[in-house]
Amino acid sequence: MIRVAALLSIGRHPASGRARRAGLDARGLELALRMPNAEVRAFHAGDPHAASLRDYLGMGLETLNVLNVAPGCDPVPALVEALRGVGPDLIICGMRAEAGEGSGMVPYLIAEALGHAVVCDAAAIECASGTARVVQGLPRGRRREVVVTLPAVVLVNSAAPAARAPAFARARRGRIVPHPVEAREDAFLAACEMRPWRARPKRMAVPSGGSAQERMKALTEAKAGEGRLLVNPVPEEAARAVRDYLVEKRFLRGAGDGDGRG
């Protein structure tokens, strides 16, 4: 039996801005729920009345412990306290929150306080006695396997399996257990200035030299694609053109590199 704690936050829909289950935390919970032989406990620091917490219950959680931390307060001490009481072998959560500051520091601070190891970018977890094998999902579909000594905090990224859909009836049956906690205001956040985000123009690497017209051309032409065109070549010629292009753009390694891309 392995004790797993899932840390769940409330997310934010990118288009509507409405509260929802946080995508990565939900994936983390999915990993936890799939784990054989695991006793999963879930924690949330925030408002116990938040409706979107029901989505986690809808995934099949029976109870969700909510540490009643007021908005703008630091949730870390309360979480550390609660987790210390449980003594989990594995703490699972998403890489980053969707709402709030979203700096991704909370799991690291918890790990530091509890003396746990941290593994980020997890796509899959497999527990053995005292260690866990974590497959990390890296950019461009690459994967890396690491072995970590438990207890550990494992941060899940979007390469992890998609979270199961929440079921209305399960959400209705699940229980939210509020725990009153004391939390202090986060002084740094209070000192920060917040304003609506306005997209700024994307910075482009401006080539130097040449006339203004040439620099402009160099920038805009790259956008439009090279537009090389071969009309009715023999298949061999076409194949060579494709091969050369792919090698040039480094999607195919040159000869002798063996098994393609790393």
Partner: peptide
């Protein structure tokens, strides 16, 4: 199947979640 098991196949679960949160 949907309300108790959330087992609708394909893109249905995602679409239902979007409907719930983004209308």
């Amino acid at each position: 199947e949907t309300l108790e098991k959330a087992s609708a196949p394909g893109k249905a679960p995602g679409v239902l979640e979007e409907l719930r949160i983004a209308d």
